[in-house]
Simulated scan of single mutants.
Amino acid sequence: MSRTLKESPKGLQTWVMASPSRMARLARGEGTPGTRAAPTQAGNNDKRIEVRLDNADTIIQDGKKFKRYKFQVNKGADNPTLKTFADKNSHEVWSHADMSCNDGDSESAIINLFEDLEKNLKK
C-alpha cells in the first residue's frame, strides 16, 4: 500500500473535526447510501483533501444503530499517486468502518471512525 494512501484519512479527519456540525452530522449517521458524507463537493475540497467518505448502509445490531462509511479516493486529487488510483476506479472502496450512532460524544465517535478506517485500509 502506498504511504500516501495510508496517510490520506488524516486530512479528511482534520476537515471533519474542524466543525462541530460536521462531526455531529456524521455521528448521527445522516445520509442516504451512495451519497457523499464528507467532504462537501465545494470549492477545491476534492482536489485538496483528495479522499472522501461515502454513506453506506445503516445497520441495527443488538438494538444499536450503526452507520457504515466507505473510504474512497477522489478523481480530482492533487497527489499523482492518489489520482492514478482514482483514475483506474473512482468507486473503489479502499476502506470501510462502522460507527455506532447517537452515543452522545461526536468527537470520540469520529476519532474511532477514522482509527477504524486506517486499520481497515486495503493492503
Rank of each mutant, 00 (worst) to 15 (best):
W94L: 10
A97V: 09
D78F: 14
N79H: 11
G104S: 13
C101Y: 00
S95M: 11
F85R: 02
I59E: 02
D98G: 01
N102H: 13
S108W: 09
F66K: 02
K70Q: 05
K83L: 12
E107I: 07
K64R: 03
K88Q: 11
C101A: 08
G104C: 14
D62Y: 09
S90F: 02
A77E: 11
K64D: 08
S100A: 15
T81Y: 10
S106V: 14
S106M: 11
A77M: 09
D105P: 09
V73Y: 02
F66R: 00
D105K: 08
S106Q: 12
N89Q: 01
Q61V: 03
K65G: 04
H96Q: 05
Q61F: 04
R68G: 02
K75C: 08
D105E: 15
Y69A: 00
H96R: 00
K64G: 00
G76K: 05
P80Y: 11
D62N: 14
H91M: 07
K75M: 10
S95W: 06
G104F: 12
N79P: 08
L82A: 12
G63A: 14
D105G: 08
T81F: 12
F66Q: 06
E92F: 01
K70H: 05
D78P: 08
A97M: 05
Q72W: 01
Q72H: 03
K65F: 06
I59T: 06
H96C: 01
C101L: 03
A77K: 06
Y69P: 04
G63L: 14
T81N: 12
G104E: 14
W94P: 02
E107V: 11
H96E: 10
S108T: 15
T84Y: 00
S108I: 15
K65H: 06
E92W: 01
L82M: 13
G63Q: 13
D98H: 01
V73S: 04
Q61Y: 08
W94C: 02
D78Y: 14
K70Y: 06
N89D: 15
S106A: 15
D62H: 11
S90G: 10
Y69L: 03
K70S: 00
W94Q: 03
N79Y: 07
E92Y: 08
K88Y: 10
V73M: 04
A97Y: 00
I59H: 04
M99G: 12
F66G: 06
D62E: 14
A97N: 05
D62R: 09
D62V: 13
M99E: 12
K64T: 07
D98M: 02
P80V: 14
E92G: 05
S106G: 15
E107L: 06
K67V: 05
D98Q: 06
K88G: 10
Q61T: 08
Q61N: 02
D62A: 14
N89A: 08
D103V: 15
A86T: 10
F85Q: 00
S106W: 09
M99K: 07
G63S: 14
Q61S: 11
K67T: 07
A77F: 12
N89V: 07
H96K: 03
K75L: 14
I60H: 00
N79R: 00
D103A: 15
G76L: 04
S106F: 12
K83H: 12
D78R: 13
A77D: 11
Y69I: 02
K67S: 07
Y69V: 01
I59A: 00
F66T: 06
